[in-house]
Write a protein that binds this DNA or RNA. Structure first.
Lengths: 195, 195
DNA sequence: AAAGCAGACTAATAACTATTAGTTTTATTA
DNA sequence: TAATAAAACTAATAGTTATTAGTCTGCTTT
């Protein structure tokens, strides 16, 4: 892992925890194990680090949701759909890197248009687009009742997003959030799936 | 309007726009029309202003959602439910004070446990609790099909919360958000209401 | 072995921050 | 009118911040 990458990594951690304005260059450098001025060998300045991080967030989004191949095969039963969904949520909620990225974006979303746009992509666009395609496919296969796939994608993902956000700020509620999510997803399937 | 209130008002505006760490005492004082040191006649310091604001947020929550009388009479038809809901959303989304409060909480939610807790109350607890009671009542009146009122409250409010959050960071999407919300609420009623 | 270079360091600076102390003005009350 | 209290001001301080300039070290390449 190069020094540059280490800087980005520690900066993301600190920005997620204390925000951009609440983090000093010196703190970042200390975590990396160098002195603050050495950091200027790798980045033009503090804001340059921030921009590199938002580039990263955008790249990560494209990587995950840009192509059509990021979700595996279509679930072939109600239970498989539920299990796949819960597994995805559980991973997303717990993965430290994704967790940091989420907090970072939530904190800095008002910084400028680019931050706002990428936050919306992460929070709404990506997952919703993914579920739109999954539900669309499962509708064709007769597993979902005929309906607007995009709307259903919203119905299933929105409550999840809110509970994940809650768990982000109140980690002691993680278990409770996960239970609420399972209850919600099961209810969603009962209402909108066939049989 | 007393100086103290003016300080709180301008501080909230600035904190919502630039965050606590991104706002200086001098900026607040300037907006109020006094010099920075004069501000210490009214507050012990910067953090004291922050605490007064979070007290305000909590009080506002109690005032709106603490009692059982904050929603008027129960809607007596599908269309009335929809209109009431949309009107509430439209007001909440546009009212400058509520808007600032929302941004403020979103920005500072990670500051400490109290901020986290109050943010959750505002974002989940309040509106959801309110709709739980409304739906519960309407279920008794036979307007909603038999189901878990709390779960349905989540289903209807979560997507709204996400779209309002989107409009907060991308005001040019306000119209689009409002349309999505209407589509969602109507769909919700079609699925869960009787007749 | 010599040269070059990336990347670390030390030292210094200029700007900004929150806060305090002490003073003056203004308005209210006795 | 005199006294009192609130709230504004000026001036100063102590601390922090990002950033620059210049130097040294250790590895790679010629």
């Amino acid at each position: 892992m190069t020094t540059r990458d280490k800087i980005l990594d520690e900066a993301l951690t600190l920005f997620a925890e204390n925000g951009y304005d609440g983090t000093s260059v010196e703190e970042i450098a200390e975590k990396v194990g160098i002195k603050a001025p050495s950091l200027y060998n790798h980045f033009k300045g503090k804001e340059d680090i921030l921009n590199a991080l938002i580039d990263m967030a955008e790249a990560r989004y494209e990587e995950f949701f840009g192509s059509d191949k990021h979700f595996g095969k279509l679930p072939e039963s109600k239970e498989e759909f539920i299990q796949t969904a819960l597994q995805k949520v559980s991973f997303t909620m717990r993965d430290p890197m994704i967790c940091k990225m989420r907090k970072f974006l939530v904190r800095e979303q008002f910084r400028n248009d680019r931050f706002a746009e990428i936050t919306t992509k992460h929070q709404l666009g990506g997952i919703q687009g993914m579920y739109t395609k999954i539900i669309e496919g499962m509708m064709r296969n007769g597993l979902f009742k005929e309906d607007d796939p995009e709307l259903l994608a919203t119905e299933v993902t929105a409550p999840v997003a809110l509970w994940v956000a809650k768990a982000d700020r109140q980690p002691q509620c993680e278990r409770e959030s996960m239970e609420s999510i399972e209850k919600h997803v099961r209810h969603f399937c009962d209402v909108y799936m066939t049989e």
